[in-house]
Design a protein around this nucleic acid. Structure first.
Lengths: 339, 339
DNA sequence: CCTAGGATGGAAAGCGCTTCCCTACGGATC
DNA sequence: GATCCGTAGGGAAGCGCTTTCCATCCTAGG
């Protein structure tokens, strides 16, 4: 039942040698084959419904056409947007994408890097924030081993030591957000800060704080999970603690947290923005259907994906590219200065 | 710089033969190796940081550990939810997921199936609705060729001839939605029907219509693109044509269309549900943050992914499993019978 | 003490392909 | 007409691994 047509079969059918068949089909990479023979081989291949065996080719050529993509969770709109760009770009380069999800587990991350090494991936793109310090040793080691094998690696989101990265200018974006909100008349803020050890969250938090300067102040900055539930819980807590009444706006360090906070506000009967103004960070596409439109800082996810693939394929060492973010003011933070 | 450690190196380092090294590392599949030697080999491998070459293994064993996944667009929440389940399940089975996106192009779909054949994928999962008839010949042929090679195939969403499928009971779900809406007092509907040739859309449309029976009626059923913009445009048109005033509720055949319609209604200054009630279909997770909560029919995307992988791996021919949908009544279709 | 048979290691044959290297051939050069 | 060279096809050597088959050793039964 399982019939495999090999190149030898094609060669025999076409009455040529294996070598010639290979050259004819590959568009004669190293040498030329008479057009007539090329045609004969092509026809034989078509007749037999021959398909080259990619694993055998990889073996013989010593390199695969696989690009590994690591994300925390492909169902997360942030990662799926990046993945879409990565897949599109990789396909344009003739590469297949091998997708793996780390489930936010650093140990798993290192493990998957090793897996990519086994697969002899041509390049690897790692998306998703990491925590500062501690367990990243295993990751670093795996990455080093991978790099030593000549595999191009690119990290998305934040620089990873020893690896080319396309970083998001979280600090800059957060600073711009702070400036915009100050301009709109906001002065006192509560910050849903995300996990303290998460670099992305930290940069956004600090970027925001630093940019406030003495023009504004933060009444409360709470540590939260980087999730919808995290934002939800945090806002409930803020309300309970009475902080909310004392604050002009709540700033979340990512969009899904902001959405969780929005839901929590609603549950409490608080209107957004009447009772509490709200801003997020990320610019995920699903924000489009949320009312009021959420003020946020858009991260160019498509660009991140595209550039990461380029970087991983480019092999120019541990460059760090940075992409900027744009502040988008929505209905969740109306202008407070006069009408 | 590019140093490759092969099994031969490990064997030499451990002072055993290649065969023994292989057996020691694979947990001696066919035969036993003295524990002492196993340890020696394991240690040598660790010392050299040896990683087996998956492509070579695939070649030698004659089968890969790759599962191909085809989706229209990985950024679409429907597909990314399915993909998450597929990846998770595949990983549990020790398989890597090779992701490709068809961009809704049937020709591309056939092409990608061929690509999976080249990759000698162990199994292939195809998600995403197809159109009825016409261009599916190329696809069918590619699928047949793939199947002949002993690759397990499963389709998600709707049955594909000759292939195991896990189908969504769109008709049943739509019927249940109709029943629920009738119960709530709705009688006259406008249906945003999606593309006429799309099987999924057709099933939902017809399921809804059939279930209405003579208890309700459809004032208008329009063909639309299966996208946010499609829903958006369609609602504007309905309003323009004056149909909207004559209708109790607008029913969209998928969620993103419903969201587009929701946005359009807002632009027109129409309140949902005060001026127009609205229902969708799909149950994508991003609905959580939409207000009013959208009445919809949830499709168990996680289950779809899990079962598709099982089916693709199981190899029991062209079974068709069906998964049911649940109606979820939200604030977008309040109870019309008395307060 | 001899031999049958189980246990275990090694040599080697592939898996399907690419590519190096050699050979054959035809035309150009002297 | 003999020598060269460029062109194009074929033979064969791997790529790194698994697995079959054979060789060897040891133990146990007669």
């Amino acid at each position: 039942m399982v019939q495999r047509v090999t190149l030898s079969d094609v060669a025999r059918e076409a009455g040529v040698s294996l070598a010639t068949a290979s050259r004819a089909i590959n568009g004669s990479a190293d040498r030329s084959v008479r057009p007539e023979l090329v045609e004969r081989v092509t026809e034989a291949a078509a007749r037999l419904q021959y398909t080259p065996d990619a694993t055998a080719q990889a073996m013989a050529r010593g390199r695969t056409t696989t690009l590994g993509l690591l994300v925390h969770d492909i169902a997360d709109p942030y990662f799926s947007a990046i993945a879409a760009a990565v897949v599109r770009t990789a396909e344009a380069e003739g590469l297949q994408v091998s997708l793996a999800t780390t489930q936010n587990d650093p140990a798993r991350e290192a493990q998957l890097i090793d897996l990519m090494r086994r697969q002899r991936a041509r390049a690897v793109v790692i998306a998703g924030g990491r925590s500062a310090g501690e367990r990243s040793d295993a990751l670093a080691e795996s990455l080093a081993a991978l790099g030593r094998q000549g595999v191009g690696i690119a990290a998305i989101g934040q620089p990873v030591p020893g690896v080319a990265s396309v970083a998001v200018d979280n600090r800059g974006g957060a600073a711009a957000l702070a400036a915009s909100l100050l301009d709109l008349g906001y002065r006192r803020f509560a910050v849903l800060g995300g996990p303290t050890d998460r670099v992305t969250a930290r940069d956004r938090r600090e970027g925001f704080l630093d940019a406030l300067g003495d023009r504004g102040s933060v009444a409360s900055s709470v540590e939260t999970a980087f999730t919808w539930e995290g934002g939800h819980r945090a806002l409930l807590r803020l309300a309970q603690d009475g902080v909310l009444a004392d604050v002009d706006a709540v700033v979340a360090t990512n969009d899904v947290m902001a959405l969780g906070a929005l839901a929590a506000a609603r549950e409490l009967g608080l209107g957004v923005p009447q009772d509490v103004a709200l801003a997020g960070f990320g610019g995920i596409s699903t924000l489009r259907d949320v009312v009021p439109t959420l003020t946020t800082v858009t991260v160019p996810m498509d660009e991140l994906g595209v550039r990461a693939v380029r970087l991983a394929l480019g092999d120019q060492g541990d460059v760090v590219e940075s992409v900027g973010c744009d502040v988008v003011i929505g209905g969740s933070t109306p202008d407070l200065r006069g009408a």
